[in-house]
């Protein structure tokens, strides 16, 4: 076997102790699909459940999403530096949009994120985006949940064009949608109600001047007319001399400060369990649970301190007992 499947419980204990060097092994484990690794991943998540931790994991889980080329990775480079300057440890989970071809992928996002390799408080991991735009790999959900126990900030970079398929909102405490100045997409989506109002809006490439300032003004007025007073809109430049980064971090912090973290994380764990279940068992599995709605309702009745892995197992158990005997495997 590969050295990947270090026991989940041990890794969980290391993260609980704040051991950041456990991060690579945690990712190796959650990405593994072998039955053995899946069992260990469940053990890992169980070791980090609110029940075990005695509270929600303390990290701020931030989602950074937007179309390809808008400047997410460049922005992360600056954000990481700013968070480090504020003495916070940071884990970046970069979901690279370079599409899977032939099963393989080219991962280059981390090149944009400047980080001192000697700084042990920065961890960056890339994964290939799945086939769906904005979709999260099961591993990314598990990783975010696990790393949140040890890092101060966990960021997930995903590609999304601001429509509903952006799953990062299920996982993150705070979602920042990154907007390309001069492109009216997000504005249109907001106005048409296609897109939910994000927690923070970021206009990149502020160094381009007028076009960025116009985007800023347009978004602000759209938000006003939607009555979304809480959503901060920040303009940033990631090229030297960078600007707006401190303000953005303040805005992210402010959102986190307003948040009922227990409710958000609880929702996140339940959606995580359901997403994993659906990946594993497909439409048929969902039908056995009486449909997605019904499954969500049922999850809502479960112990709020349970971790995602335990919840998924509970869903599987329920689906199995609901299936008429002899109708196949679940």
């Amino acid at each position: 076997m590969s050295g990947d499947s270090e026991a989940g419980a041990d890794l969980g204990a290391r993260l609980r102790d704040g051991d950041l060097t456990a991060a690579p092994a945690v990712l190796n484990l959650v990405e593994s699909r072998s039955p053995e690794a899946r069992t260990q991943t469940e053990a890992l998540l169980a070791a980090l459940s609110p029940a075990t931790l005695g509270a929600e994991a303390s990290a701020h889980i931030v989602g950074v999403t937007g179309p390809p080329g808008v400047g997410k990775s460049s922005l992360l480079s600056r954000l990481v530096a700013e968070w480090r300057a504020r003495e916070r440890s940071v884990a970046v989970l970069a979901v690279d949009p370079s599409s899977r071809r032939s099963g393989g992928s080219l991962l280059g996002d981390r090149a944009r994120i400047e980080a001192d390799p000697r700084d042990g408080a920065i961890f960056i991991r890339s994964t290939a985006a799945g086939d769906r735009l904005g979709g999260l790999a099961p591993a990314t959900r598990a990783a975010a949940g696990a790393l949140a126990a040890a890092f101060d900030v966990v960021v997930i970079e995903t590609v999304g064009v601001g429509q509903s398929e952006t799953e990062v909102a299920d996982v993150a405490d705070t979602v920042a949608v990154v907007v390309q100045p001069g492109s009216g997409d997000v504005l249109q989506f907001l106005k048409a109600g296609i897109m939910e109002v994000p927690d923070v809006l970021v206009v990149t490439k502020a160094d381009l001047g007028r076009v960025a300032m116009r985007a800023l003004a347009d978004l602000r007025s759209a938000l006003r007319s939607l009555g979304a007073r809480d959503t901060a809109v920040v303009a940033v430049s990631s090229v030297a001399p960078a600007s707006g980064i401190g303000k953005l971090v303040d805005a992210l912090d402010a959102h986190r400060g307003r948040l009922d973290i227990a409710t958000r994380r609880l929702r996140s764990r339940r959606l995580h369990a359901l997403a994993d279940f659906a990946t594993e068992h497909g439409q048929r599995g969902l039908r056995a649970l009486g449909g997605r709605r019904e499954a969500e309702r049922w999850l809502g009745s479960q112990d709020p301190a349970l971790d995602a892995g335990t919840l998924e197992r509970a869903l599987e158990h329920r689906a199995r007992s609901a299936e008429p005997p002899g109708s196949g495997t679940i």
Binding site: E31, G104, G108, A111, R118, F123
Partner: peptide, 21 residues
């Protein structure tokens, strides 16, 4: 495949290799 382009220090490469698993 993780490829970050040219001009990296040995410790940058090693850190990427370790973090990326």
């Amino acid at each position: 495949v993780v490829y970050e382009g040219i001009r990296l220090t040995p410790s940058q490469i090693a850190t990427s290799a370790a973090q990326e698993g």
